[in-house]
Design a protein around this nucleic acid. Structure first.
Lengths: 156, 156
DNA sequence: CCTTGACCTTCCCATCATGGGAATCCCTAT
DNA sequence: ATAGGGATTCCCATGATGGGAAGGTCAAGG
């Protein structure tokens, strides 16, 4: 099986298959005399595994650990579960962060006429007029005013 | 005001201030005879604007457009509102995507003993045994089984 | 047998926003 | 004068992915 066929079969682009090999995520396959990569069923299986893990939002690093566990017949399911739940925690953190952004933006947009006039509460908020910029915060103990996320990375 | 002071005052790192200048997001400030950047209040104000926009998840591109509108006294608030609501839509898309991951992972983890034994529904799911891998999908019209997101970028 | 087109190979570059660090220069206080 | 803390520029790294160039290979058809 060529890389193109393996790509088709696994749903992973050829580009990524080569990349995964280069970082040691998957094993380097055998090559033909003309240097073409040749894949077999187990390789495609591993690629599908990676694809699914990526779809579930696992990083390549976590995916590598999951792959190791997958291959280790004496693994402890507790280890796998811990990785998964850590990932869930991380996802939830991001969801909450984004929901807070959404809440603020919706509130600001709601108060914006959205017409020909230049007056705009959204720009007012960005300008620093935090006066009426934040809604009364719903139920949870969500931080009011500036999220003041401690210098965290952009959330895409 | 030095770049360090401007950084303190605005909450934007000196590194980022220089970067924002290099991509034309903010104006290049005047320099001292010894080539130090010198900032004044309006500059810090703009930096705070950028900071706040970033905190709300706007990309630098969107931030640039918002900055332009901010400076344009004849802007239409409708334009600002449209940018904000587009961004909200995008954030919501990502939130839903992540919530689907969370739902699936929680379900899988729930069915995993998490003990010494190697049997693990999480790995089973990644392996492709999609049999009992997806919960019955809650209320919303959320897509079942494979999210099959059309080759979308990683969600971190 | 040769051409054509579809594949494969490697290598470099770009994205997005940010940080790290080196080498060098400048300012201020002792 | 000297030490320290800042400033400057420049290069590199991140994570995951795509784009594309330059060149080698294979199979089918003329």
């Amino acid at each position: 099986m060529n890389i193109g066929e393996a790509s088709q079969a696994s749903g992973v682009s050829a580009k990524m298959i080569r990349y995964y090999e280069s970082i040691g995520l998957i094993n380097a396959p055998v090559r033909t005399a003309s240097n073409y990569r040749v894949y077999a069923e187990p390789d495609v299986h591993a690629l599908k595994f990676v694809r699914r893990a990526r779809d579930l939002g696992f990083t390549l690093d976590e995916t590598a650990r999951l792959l190791d566990l997958w291959r280790d017949r004496r693994r402890r399911s507790a280890t796998v579960k811990a990785i998964a739940l850590d990932h869930v925690t991380e996802l939830e953190r991001k969801v909450i962060e984004m929901q807070e952004m959404i809440r603020t933006l919706r509130h600001l947009a709601h108060n914006c006429h959205g017409d020909e006039r230049p007056d705009c509460p959204i720009l007012d908020d960005l300008t620093g007029n935090c006066a009426a910029s934040n809604p009364p915060a719903p139920q949870h103990g969500v931080r009011k005013s500036r999220p003041s996320l401690p210098r965290r990375r952009q959330i895409i």
